[in-house]
Design a protein around this nucleic acid. Structure first.
Length: 759
RNA sequence: GGGCGUGUGGCUCAGUUGGUUAGAGCGCUGUCCUCACACGACAGAAGUCAGUGGUUCGAAUCCACUCACGCCCACCA
């Protein structure tokens, strides 16, 4: 896929703003958006509400105060909120308090009498504290809920500024922390604090600024996630759950589906109004003539009907109305609040395609196929997009969600400004190239797992980029001065090496394509890298220096490799394509077709080539262990048995790649004097090195090799002697083990032969 | 309190439905500035797959438990 810049969109441009206002209006008309006075998460620093998932939790040591409370004792971590208590809850079966339930007591915490009703609720833990919970409906979601059920008054003692309100008596105007200290000191002076315990407590903080969040009652706009949508019979919540459960959306890796369901099932009404200026303004206008501010304290919850639909002077519309729907007067004032950014972003997949117009784009491109994002944004954005899209279009927003992990530093820490461990993509792009940065983010990481990134890693991929560049240069050189390659069909293989590299290419095309389909991006990249570097460059290009006549095949291989790499490293591949293949400026790799595997390599070709590789490696090994200078040629004698013809035929390759002067191949023969030797399968290799040969070392090496080989043989024999294995394992597996045994026996015999000759 | 993830050579990570003597890159060791590339070539060393028990002819892979680290969720007052 590529970006279509003609469809560039911005959240706050006219079309997107229109879509946001439109969906708000529709949801309001369907009774899914309402204005209500209830508990919200309030950040005193941002002076705004927060959605439930915008609140983060931190475990911190805290104090649990046991305070005298009229005839009772209650335990609390927030003594100052007790000034807002209007009730107290106990477990229904708690014998200690049973007789009190239903009664109202009057207590005085120092600011005058407070009426406290005793209620019972099964959620109260009898063993925590005194088994009795003071209820502060205005500052605790749980308490608020119980207050609803038991019709307790709401007494708001903490204001939006984070300071105590007028209802807090002499503590009014104090910030909560100061109020707490003073209040506790006052209680202690009066002997009303029974004891103080140290406990661990999780406090809620604002995800944006880290300030402690105050739950408080406030009049805000909410999305009702439980209410059945008119005409559809399902709630938003249900719709969003079914989208994933019924397979319309697949999340990769799938374990996140479980996380998604859990979150959705527990979703409560979503507070969408914010008191910040950056956002879409809420499309609601209040009539200056007939709208009367609701009375907060008299208000009970109760939902959409009571609070908005019936409320006079509230006008909801996608564009500013001329006059009030109730009184017809034109004096309208728009709500000053903005919408939660995720409410707006939730419309993204369809607002970018022109919704609410019935555009051709919408018809053609929606639902989209893949959304790719970090798992930390699953609730914020993905869940909201699903919710909003299901509502607006009765479609899923996308068919697949690919979740990547978070990028961390070398030590696994989150990147952050304060730790100064941020790797700026622009810096490292300039330093190592953009393709190298891309590769370092793709390779070495799997879906949903965090990624440790370091400059060192990026540097490695810079090296690979350079390797690909040099491979291209080499291939260009073989084409001759200034020559350009014409993309053509697949050339027929002329040699075994050709057959092998084309066969390997097919295998690589197959596995890379399959991995991309399965979103195994890292594995696809690794497969490609290993093929490009080890097989194409280290083997085939070296062979091409020996075997000539590859003017067609080399460009073909390069083009296929460029196509396969293009999604991973678009810049370098495109540039090489431009230099080597492009007919004109409009001929671009990024729109080229994806390679397809042409066939399957014959097993014989594969085995033959592997035998040649083994021989070359064995010869190089001897060179290395005797420290023969790279420039110096060695002579070699090979007793190859049935492979003699194969080696004779490809002697040039062996000589070229292993720097052999005279290569003698025979089925078998007599071991030469003063030669270093090696055994590769059933093949014996000798390199006469005259006085250089160290017989003691040769002997030790062969003995070690023999020991190793016998150990393996024993394990094979043991396996084959096991009757259950032979009887129960698939025939093919058993046969494979038998073959291994035969080969191993042969190898051992050759090693013994060589050892004998040394004596 | 609930849920999830990770634990594989010094480091970073792959290992599809259980079946090659467990792979790769970095790093390391040795030789080389060989005419595409020293951001390179060649050769090599290095792992009882966290632990225990189980299932199986066969376990890094499946099951149970344990340990370590990390993350997410939750109205523990």
């Amino acid at each position: 896929s590529s970006c279509d810049w003609s469809r560039e969109a911005y959240t706050f441009d006219e079309k997107r703003s229109r879509a946001v206002a439109e969906i708000f209006t529709r949801m309001y008309d369907d009774g899914l958006i309402y204005r209500g006075y209830r508990i919200v998460n309030w950040c005193p620093r941002c002076e705004s509400t927060l959605a439930d998932d915008e609140v983060e939790y931190k475990e911190e040591p805290a104090k649990l105060y046991y305070m005298k409370y009229g005839p009772f004792v209650v335990a609390t971590t927030r003594p100052e909120t007790k000034l807002g208590d209007t009730g107290v809850a106990v477990h229904p079966d708690d014998e200690r308090y049973k007789s009190w339930v239903g009664k109202t007591v009057t207590i005085d915490l120092g600011i005058g009498p407070q009426l406290i009703k005793v209620i019972s609720d099964p959620s109260v833990d009898r063993n925590f504290g005194t088994g009795m919970v003071g209820l502060t409906p205005a500052h605790s979601a749980v308490d608020f809920k119980m207050a609803e059920e038991n019709l307790l008054p709401i007494r708001k003692v903490i204001g939006e500024d984070g300071k105590m309100t007028g209802l807090a008596g002499k503590y009014a105007g104090l910030p909560v922390v100061e109020a707490r200290e003073k209040f506790v000191a006052d209680l202690q002076a009066k002997g009303l604090i029974e004891k103080i315990e140290d406990i661990k407590h999780s406090i809620s903080v604002c995800y944006r600024c880290g300030t402690v969040v105050e739950p408080l009652t406030s009049r805000q706009w909410f999305v009702d996630v439980e209410r059945p949508i008119p005409g559809r019979g399902k709630s938003l919540k249900r719709l969003a759950i079914d989208a994933v459960r019924k397979g319309g959306i697949k999340i990769v890796p799938d374990r996140f589906e479980k996380v998604y369901f859990h979150w959705m099932e527990n979703l409560r009404d979503w507070c969408i109004s914010r008191q910040i200026w950056f956002g879409h303004r809420i499309p609601v206008w209040y009539c200056e003539s007939c709208y009367v501010e609701e009375d907060d304290t008299a208000d009970r919850a109760g939902g959409a009907e009571r609070e908005t639909k019936k409320h006079q002077g509230i006008n909801v519309a996608a564009t500013r109305p001329d006059k009030c729907k109730d009184c017809g007067r034109p004096d309208l004032v728009q709500d000053e609040d903005t919408l939660d950014t995720w409410f707006s972003s939730g419309t993204w997949t369809f607002s970018t395609l022109g919704w609410p117009e019935k555009t051709a784009d919408l018809k053609r491109f929606h639902p989209t196929q893949v959304l790719e994002t970090g798992y930390d944004i699953l609730f914020f954005w993905i869940a909201r997009m699903i919710l909003m899209t299901e509502y607006a279009l009765d479609q899923v927003p996308f068919e697949q969600v690919y979740l990547h992990g978070l990028v961390r530093d070398e030590q696994g820490r989150k990147m952050s400004k304060s730790l100064e461990n941020i790797i700026d993509p622009l810096d490292v792009s300039a330093k190592y190239g953009t393709d190298a940065v891309r590769l370092s983010l793709i390779i070495g990481n799997t879906a949903g797992n965090d990624l440790k990134l370091s400059e060192e890693k990026i540097g490695y991929f810079r090296n690979f980029t350079n390797k690909l560049w040099n491979i291209s240069r080499f291939i260009m050189m073989t084409l001759g001065e200034g020559a350009r390659a014409v993309p053509a069909g697949r050339p027929a293989p002329k040699t075994l090496a050709d057959q092998w590299i084309l066969g390997r290419l097919d295998e690589v095309v197959g596995s890379v394509t399959a991995d991309l389909d399965k979103m195994n991006f890292s594995r696809a990249g690794e497969t490609l890298r290993d093929f490009t570097w080890s097989e194409l460059a280290d083997w085939y290009l070296e062979i091409a220096k020996v075997e000539k006549g590859k003017e067609k095949l080399l460009p073909y291989l390069l083009l296929q490799v460029l196509k396969l790499w293009h999604p991973f490293m678009p810049f370098v591949t495109e540039e090489v394509y431009r230099l080597v293949f492009a007919k004109d400026a409009n001929d671009m790799l990024m729109v080229a077709g994806w390679p397809r595997a042409a066939g399957k390599m014959p097993a014989k070709a594969k085995a033959d080539f592997a035998a040649i590789q083994d021989l070359v490696v064995a010869l190089r090994n001897i060179r290395a262990s005797y420290k023969v200078e790279p420039g110096r040629k060695i002579d070699a004698l090979v007793f190859a048995g049935t492979k003699a013809d194969l080696f004779k035929k490809h002697a040039e390759i062996v000589r070229g790649l292993a720097k052999v002067g005279e290569l003698t191949v025979a089925a078998k023969g007599q071991r030469p004097d003063k030669a270093a030797g090696a055994v590769v399968g059933s093949v014996q290799v000798f390199v006469p090195l005259g006085s250089l040969v160290d017989f003691a070392a040769e002997k030790t090496r062969l003995e070690d090799e023999l020991q190793e080989a016998e150990k393996y043989l024993t394990s094979l024999e043991l396996k084959l002697k096991n009757e259950s294995f032979v009887a129960r394992a698939p025939a093919a597996v058993v046969e494979a083990e038998r073959q291994k045994k035969v080969a191993q026996v042969e190898k051992i015999n050759k090693i013994i032969e060589q050892l004998e000759a040394l004596k």
